[in-house]
Write a protein that binds this DNA or RNA. Sequence first.
DNA 1: CGGGCGTTGCAAATCGATTTGCACGAGGTC
DNA 2: GACCTCGTGCAAATCGATTTGCAACGCCCG
Lengths: 311, 311
Amino acid sequence: MRERATIKDVAARAGVSPTTVSHVLSGQRPVSVETSARVRQAVAETGYRPAAIARSMRTRRTETVALIVPDIANPFYPTVARGLHDALDGHGYRTLIGSTDGRRDAELGFLEDVVSRSVDGIMLFGHSLDAEDLRTVVGGRVPIVLSSDLGAGEHDRVVVDDVEGAEAATAHLLASGVTDIAFVSGPKGLGPGDWRLSGYLRALGAAGLAAAEDRIVRGDYTVESGRAAVGRLLAGGAPPRAVICANDLMAIGALTAAHDAGVAVPGELAVIGFDNIDAAGLVRPALTTVELPAYEIGRRSGELLLARMSG
Amino acid sequence: MRERATIKDVAARAGVSPTTVSHVLSGQRPVSVETSARVRQAVAETGYRPAAIARSMRTRRTETVALIVPDIANPFYPTVARGLHDALDGHGYRTLIGSTDGRRDAELGFLEDVVSRSVDGIMLFGHSLDAEDLRTVVGGRVPIVLSSDLGAGEHDRVVVDDVEGAEAATAHLLASGVTDIAFVSGPKGLGPGDWRLSGYLRALGAAGLAAAEDRIVRGDYTVESGRAAVGRLLAGGAPPRAVICANDLMAIGALTAAHDAGVAVPGELAVIGFDNIDAAGLVRPALTTVELPAYEIGRRSGELLLARMSG
DNA sequence: CGGGCGTTGCAAATCGATTTGCACGAGGTC
DNA sequence: GACCTCGTGCAAATCGATTTGCAACGCCCG
């Protein structure tokens, strides 16, 4: 039995037509108990499993959801993935995951690919796409959940309030008398780095402070880039009193940079991160972090998609 | 244009048959330059993309690889996933990921599902399946890479030498004069916990030492379970001088337990983990860990699968 | 006893591509 | 001029399921 059994094989073995086999298995139409028993027997003997592709061809459903993230190895996203997975698994959906490194071509390519694969839903963490891209590639054909403002109004969004989180963190520092605050963002452009940056700027503005050019630096969300960026800040003549990093990994790098420069944390330099990844609670000194509930974001997105996919 | 264009639409627009459109796109047979131009024009105008499902139906290939792991949120696996992804992405393959929590029914269910979806390859971290399961569900129909000894000889394996790694770590401790070594494994049965445990036992045996019953405890690979397990060890009358944990998360829990019990690490208690996850280098005191090259395991597996899938 | 109705099963169409076999014409060769 | 060979393009089969439409067969009721 090298080849997998098809519905025809089962039908032949049970002495009925493929139609009847299908009806026995789906319960779409009544089948007599004797026939049904013969069919089930044949199914068991042949080890028959319906070919998902052929089924999808006809039903136009794949029971698959795509998750598009910048980097699956960044601890924030596996937790989102797990939440999404847990929401969908019980309903028979599988998850197709892609890492894009935030590159526009990769995001676009993956999106086109999963649309042509007829996934039933998409969860997108897009850093470079705009609303027009979504319109041309996805159209209204596939339910999609976004993590950003992208295409607000047309698609579901699970709000990760980056701006407000950053604003609150900055305001907290200001309230405790720290005014010289630096910010380590991600690559220029769209993406959580600059959303969070805008919250930082807003808080400074509300306090009547201007943001100094040289207090805003950029990394690429890795530990090493955070270390390098904060190392530069500390090497200058007048180091800042606090630094807010756009994610925890860079904040962890910042701790190392401070240590290397002999700067005490949090005494001489306060360090704040984003995401509250597991490692944030394990490093010493412990990291202050703005929590984004990754698991909840994933789970909630899964539920939104389920509602759209069934409706 | 609510619906996606099909090959028929393109053919009609270009005034040719679907066959010709297919040949233009695939280059399987020569087509005159004029006709070819008209077809390409029509493709551009309609925004046509071949439906992946229909194509798979005919070609019997899905350009998809399944990755089955116990828990995608455990930091070890996203790194493996990234390695696998990087190996496959350039060749047009996508990755379908599933978390099973190491439960037999989930592992079996996911495996059956992806086989019926006709994935082109599978990478499996299976904790509860046996060789017989693989034979009945997968047969020889799909290339599969395993991380364990499961079905050795029949399938490709990317060796993660758990046994040898644990043996070396234990021997290292013994060589430095520490003989009272405890071991924190995972749930009883298959899985990396007990593979590593056997390496520990082998090293003890080689040194002519017997393993004491009460020195072997179990957790479930989480930080909290490691803390609890080591907490119990330390609460006993004569605490061990060293503890080897079957993964880094439990080892991190062990550090907390030691701290809570006022036991100095590594002075009074040496702690060794497995996996060398990012957090291992960030905790204080730094964790000694047996490195399993997660990224390399994923990438290498991807390359093995590519070779099998194309051949 | 004829007409309606519910039960049961099958034949055939359909989903959207790929691929094989065949036909037609133009051009070249002996 | 008969015979081949290319170059081009189309019709039809195929992949494996689901889903109508239809027919045959009781069975009940008036």
